[in-house]
Amino acid sequence: MRFLDAAAVAALGPTGAVRAITDALRGGLDPATDTPRSAVGLAHGQFLLMPSEAPAAAGVKVVTVAPGNPARGLPRIQAVYLLFDGETLALRAVLDGTALTTLRTPAVSVAAVLPALPDRPLRVAVVGAGPQATGHVATLAAVRPLARATHLVRDPSRTPLDAVRLGSADADEALRAADVVVCATSARSPLFDSSLLRDDAVVVAVGSHEPDARELDAPLLGRATVVVEDVATALREAGDVVLAIAEGTLAAADLVPVRDLVTGAVPPPADRPLVFKSVGMSWQDLVVAAAMVG
């Protein structure tokens, strides 16, 4: 049995993680068959349990959410991943689950939107400055050169990144110019006016998995091709999608499963934005963990 700490998990790298996700989807993996995550209430927070199975392996990510931890100087969310042999169910490896999430989430996003990315240096606007924000920049840079990456945050003085204040003229200009916009925040309401975005913009939203929280406004989803990991999961957990449908700008029948875009069954749009809304699914952790362990 192996233990992979954060450095060992990161060693797969963005390119390897994107390749693992892409190969799995092209190889026949159907996210619709994945087991939904479940929550278990605890006295001081909750467990999130994310199990998944493939022919050669099975695994489960155990996530702890402790709302009181930040006041103690500890992370609010922590995780561990257990990887088992698919036939004997013997434990093969224990992985740093937080590092796995940090790697796999942007890998899924980039695998999803790669067919729509222009083949030139990208101008990227990233709302947020945390690990997922920087991870998406690094993963985009692994598949395309970046002309510029600008972080849009509420308080630029709190980050050493190249950042501008969200809502400022500079932030609006970054959104107008962006080939790719990434939203990786804990926001519960739309972060910006989507009329700023170009008709060929690619937008990724990964910040929430709750049906009443969203980072994107309904008009954007109404004028975009909306790609999701799995339609049923999005209708259950993706607030950006759920609320846009409730407001009448989007229909469930319009949603495109990511598998269809990655395999080429559905071509990327040529005349409208592409939005990829991700809530995170268990199969993603298993695919990337199995690629690390071999």
Score class of each variant (00 low, 15 high):
residue 11 A to E: 04
residue 18 V to H: 05
residue 18 V to S: 04
residue 20 A to K: 04
residue 20 A to L: 07
residue 22 T to K: 10
residue 23 D to A: 12
residue 36 P to W: 02
residue 37 R to C: 08
residue 39 A to Q: 15
residue 41 G to N: 14
residue 43 A to K: 14
residue 44 H to L: 13
residue 48 L to I: 14
residue 55 P to I: 09
residue 60 V to F: 09
residue 60 V to N: 01
residue 63 V to N: 00
residue 72 R to F: 14
residue 77 I to F: 15
residue 83 L to A: 05
residue 89 L to P: 13
residue 90 A to M: 10
residue 99 A to H: 05
residue 101 T to R: 02
residue 117 L to V: 08
residue 118 P to G: 05
residue 121 P to R: 13
residue 125 A to D: 03
residue 126 V to E: 04
residue 126 V to I: 12
residue 133 A to D: 01
residue 137 V to E: 08
residue 138 A to E: 04
residue 138 A to G: 08
residue 141 A to W: 05
residue 144 R to Q: 04
residue 145 P to E: 09
residue 151 H to I: 03
residue 152 L to T: 08
residue 162 D to T: 11
residue 163 A to F: 02
residue 163 A to I: 01
residue 164 V to R: 05
residue 166 L to Y: 01
residue 170 D to S: 15
residue 174 A to W: 04
residue 186 S to C: 12
residue 192 F to W: 05
residue 194 S to D: 03
residue 196 L to C: 06
residue 197 L to R: 00
residue 202 V to K: 02
residue 203 V to T: 02
residue 209 H to D: 15
residue 211 P to C: 03
residue 212 D to Y: 13
residue 215 E to I: 04
residue 228 V to Q: 03
residue 231 V to W: 10
residue 232 A to K: 09
residue 237 E to C: 04
residue 238 A to V: 11
residue 242 V to R: 00
residue 243 L to N: 04
residue 245 I to S: 03
residue 253 A to H: 10
residue 265 A to R: 14
residue 265 A to W: 10
residue 267 P to C: 11
residue 267 P to W: 11
residue 273 P to E: 01
residue 274 L to W: 00
residue 290 A to V: 12
